[in-house]
Design a protein around this nucleic acid. Structure first.
Lengths: 202, 202
DNA sequence: GCATCCATGTAACCAGTTACATGATTTG
DNA sequence: CAAATCATGTAACTGGTTACATGGATGC
């Protein structure tokens, strides 16, 4: 989960841990409250695995987005000078590697992750997937939700009002998710149909 | 989470682990897939803490629901005979204790648990709460969701269609949750107003 | 008698948390 | 210069998971 999120964010820009956390909080409504205690170890693991590498500051690689933060770049420069001069620590900016990109795609296409948060995250990064994998992701999720609906107890009679309300509300939520997925699937099919010969799939 | 669910289920009936799991799967749409690897250790802990106790079969305590399962009772009888005769293991039926009931109420009223599943679970068991605690539970949840909405980024402009769709859908879900809570709160206020002098609270 | 479900349990692991500790930078 | 915010990290813990091991009861 976290690996996926971090790699995804790093896919479009070099970032440091603190900023990664901020983006998780702001850009994704789900996946709030990820704590530093998770992020830094995760980044460490990813670095050890060669999926990301640290860069001293945004100097090389893809044209660093100027983003109008002159003060930020000055700060980075100063930090770097300090860092080399006194060996002190500073911001650790991470960049995704080729290995990391491959790993990211693996995580993104992995069909054995069915929890809602993981799905939301994957869909949010779906632009990195080829169209057919995108479609597969949506349809897999849809099938899961449909099955959950069928598994929902047909009883509900002997529960009190509170429990019943919870169950009904949950069920409604699932139904709306399915509708939403249907719209997405339709849109996806349309674009697939446009860009290539129509593929027949369930 | 699990403790709460187990105690809540045991509040209305003596049950064994396997059956507890089955009920979690069927009665609650959320909280599916709780595994035995969680349940048995949790029951063990609860027993060690004195929150539940094992009974050999449904013989004493609250009038065992006959539930028409004669074969079930025969099986229990036979199992008990075996158990005493050969010291073999059999179904371990748990009953909640006074300590357990107190613990259950604590968990149910604990304001420091804000994740959605925990809330759903507590609301499902809300009949065990006094009306004011019920109202407090609902209003706390509502406040959390409202805050989450205000924290949602007003930007959304520079995200691609997939990420935007996820965020929008999530936001809609939160809004519907709030509407739902509003209805529940209103209903709750009505019953409170009926049974006692109207209390003024935010 | 064999498969299948009911039933309990353990061990290893995993993804995340909180609390703690440290220090640099910015701002009033 | 003090307070707030930026920034990184570690250790202990939590609440679960999967995989494994075992065995009784039921149904065909």
């Amino acid at each position: 989960m976290l690996d996926l999120a971090l790699l995804g964010l790093l896919e479009d820009g070099e970032l440091h841990g603190y900023e990664l956390r901020r983006r998780l909080r702001t850009q994704f409504g789900f996946l709030t409250n990820v704590s530093f205690g998770s992020i830094y170890p995760a980044l460490g693991k990813l670095e050890a695995a060669g999926a990301v590498e640290t860069v001293e500051a945004a100097t090389s690689g893809p044209p660093a987005p100027p983003s109008g933060s002159l003060s930020g770049e000055w700060a980075a420069l100063r930090a770097r000078r300090r860092a080399s001069a006194r060996g002190r620590r500073s911001k650790k900016v991470y960049r995704i590697t080729a290995v990391g990109r491959a790993h990211f795609l693996d995580l993104l296409s992995d069909p054995t992750a069915d929890d809602p948060r993981s799905f939301a995250l994957r869909l949010a990064f779906a632009r990195h997937l080829p169209p057919d994998a995108r479609l597969a992701l949506l349809e897999r999720r849809r099938a899961q939700l449909v099955q959950r609906l069928t598994e929902t107890p047909p009883d509900g009679g002997r529960l009190d009002a509170y429990a019943r309300s919870v169950i009904e509300h949950t069920t409604e939520g699932v139904e709306q998710d399915i509708d939403w997925l249907d719209r997405l699937i339709e849109a996806e099919r349309a674009t697939v149909g446009l860009s290539a010969a129509p593929v027949q799939r369930a």
